Simulated scan of single mutants.
Amino acid sequence: MTYSPVFYRASGSGEKDALLALLRENPAIKVYDELHGQLKELIKSRHPTRVLSAEETEAAIAAHLAGRPEEDYGVWVYYPWSERLVHLLDEEEFIAMRTSRNIYKIKVEERDLLIRKKIGVIGLSVGQTIALTLAMERIGGELRLADFDDLELSNMNRIRTSVHNLGVPKVISAAREIAELDPFIKVKCYTDGATEENLQDFLTGGGQLDLLVEECDSLNVKILSRIRAKALRMPVVMEMNDRGMLDIERYDLEPDYPMMHGLIPDIDMETLSNLTTEQKVPILGPMVGGEAMSSRMKYSLTQIGKTITAWPQLASSVMLGGGMVADTCRRILLDELKVSGRFYVDFEQLIK
């Protein structure tokens, strides 16, 4: 399933003809051309000390276009999955305008550094909100997403998507949302999830990740991903969706740091793979902070397989986790945060 947009630069050799042919051959395509408004915003951003009149703004736009037809300026972006064609400023101006309201909370030089970073997200339930928040804040110019599940109706209690995406792989749905938000962010999808066979490619293919966000349910992948990340001296961030628990492991700064703070037992992957789900529970419990879980989460876990079928998650916790992880990733990548450990943003304790 496609998740990458197609770019047409009408000023480029042959691309305008290709764009016109696309429109002729696909009359159902919906065209969205709000470039003039983007140009107004661009001109406004370049004159922060005074308000230009309408006439001054139009004159400045004409000077900026330098005789080029507006329809040939910028880039036309085609989204095949929705048959939409959108006229946008091209990459440099687009990024400048889309991030303009981040300045100076994120400085221009910091934004430009973050654009060069690669981030991987394993698990696209909590991870979907994390990936979208990273994209919105433009933390990372390349995102790699791994999950093997398709979207189900019960996922929509915490995954922000549309009902027409039911049955679509979670990674594809997330990648399409990112492309519709910012088509210039590179996204690579692993629809088989993170596996022993593809994990090395996920972490290093096309350049090593600068940071790994691990949000999967599989105990095997939790451990294996850390074994590989530690060998590569790669930081790992995880959010547990209960009591605002955030987990940071800085293998980049401390190569000998114990995996998940020493909570992973000394067990080889072959033995682990042969354990039953029941046998894995005592191993998983300490790793996910079982003793510190909220009372409601502890009770919920006793009901799995009895009155409920899966680990419960709430949208409010997922949204909090997306913000916490994105903020943490930004500060790690900007070398502002250097700690490993577990941290809690527990609303029930903070607000009462």
Rank of each mutant, 00 (worst) to 15 (best):
T2I: 11
Y3R: 12
V6E: 14
V6P: 08
E15K: 11
K16T: 00
A28Y: 14
I29H: 13
K30I: 01
G37S: 10
I43A: 03
I43S: 00
E58T: 07
A59C: 05
H64I: 00
L65T: 08
A66F: 05
R68M: 11
Y78Q: 01
L88N: 10
Y104A: 04
I119S: 11
V126R: 12
Q128T: 01
I130F: 05
L132V: 03
S154M: 03
S154Y: 07
S162H: 14
H164W: 12
G167M: 02
A174H: 06
P183W: 03
C189F: 06
G193I: 00
E197N: 15
L199V: 02
L211M: 07
R226Y: 04
I227E: 08
I227H: 11
A231N: 12
R233L: 01
V237P: 01
M240Q: 15
M240P: 00
M245F: 05
L246P: 03
L253M: 04
M259S: 02
L263H: 10
D268H: 14
D268M: 05
M269Y: 13
N274V: 00
Q279V: 00
M287R: 13
G289M: 00
G290D: 03
G290F: 10
S300Q: 06
S300G: 10
S300F: 05
T302H: 05
T307I: 00
W311I: 02
G322Q: 06
D327F: 15
R330T: 11
L337E: 14
L337T: 08
G341E: 11
